Simulated scan of single mutants.
Amino acid sequence: MKKVYICAPLAGDVEGNLEKAKRYSEFALRCGAAPVTPHFYALCLNNSIPEEREMGMAAGLSLLWFCDEVWVFGDQTTDGMRAEIKLAHNLNIKVKIIKPHEIEKILAR
């Protein structure tokens, strides 16, 4: 099973973005991939405390190296996402942008 790193906004509306991360993870699963979703660290760390955000970012980036691809979601690219995408490029990991209509096609209920 392909391992895909979920790259999407977290800061700002953390609660709303965590819900979106669940949806993106479900999308990956239904596409036959195993999602690596670092957003879920925000369930045990406080993203508004810089030290805890840094800890979560470092933990997420440490998982990126073993992923087959990075899937980018959302309508904005945050600083954290730019760091993830940059690392993926440095590691020669494919970066794929997932459009909303692709998600709807798979998750339409």
Rank of each mutant, 00 (worst) to 15 (best):
L91E: 13
F73Q: 05
H39V: 14
G74V: 01
C67H: 01
L18N: 11
S48D: 14
A28E: 07
C31E: 13
R82V: 03
V4I: 15
R23E: 15
D75A: 03
K20Q: 07
Y41E: 10
W65E: 15
L91K: 10
N90T: 01
K20A: 12
E54S: 01
N46P: 06
R82I: 03
I49C: 06
E51L: 00
A34Q: 12
N90C: 03
V14W: 13
S25T: 02
C67F: 04
S25Q: 02
S25D: 10
R30W: 05
W71G: 00
E84G: 08
N47C: 11
W71M: 05
C31T: 09
F40E: 12
A59P: 10
I93Q: 11
P38D: 05
R23M: 07
L10T: 14
G56N: 03
P38M: 06
E51A: 04
E26D: 07
K22G: 07
E19Q: 08
I85G: 02
L91V: 02
E69Y: 01
G80E: 00
S25A: 02
K86S: 06
G32Q: 01
L61N: 06
D13Q: 15
D68N: 08
I6T: 14
K20P: 06
V4K: 09
A58W: 06
H89K: 05
A8M: 02
R82G: 01
A88Q: 01
P100Y: 08
K20V: 04
L91F: 11
I85Y: 04
G12I: 14
L43Q: 15
A58E: 14
W71Q: 02
A8R: 00
L10M: 14
H39Y: 10
N46A: 13
N17M: 12
W65T: 07
K20R: 07
I97H: 02
S48T: 15
D13H: 15
F40K: 08
K96Y: 07
A34K: 10
N47F: 14
A8L: 02
A33L: 07
Y5L: 03
G80I: 00
D79R: 05
A42M: 14
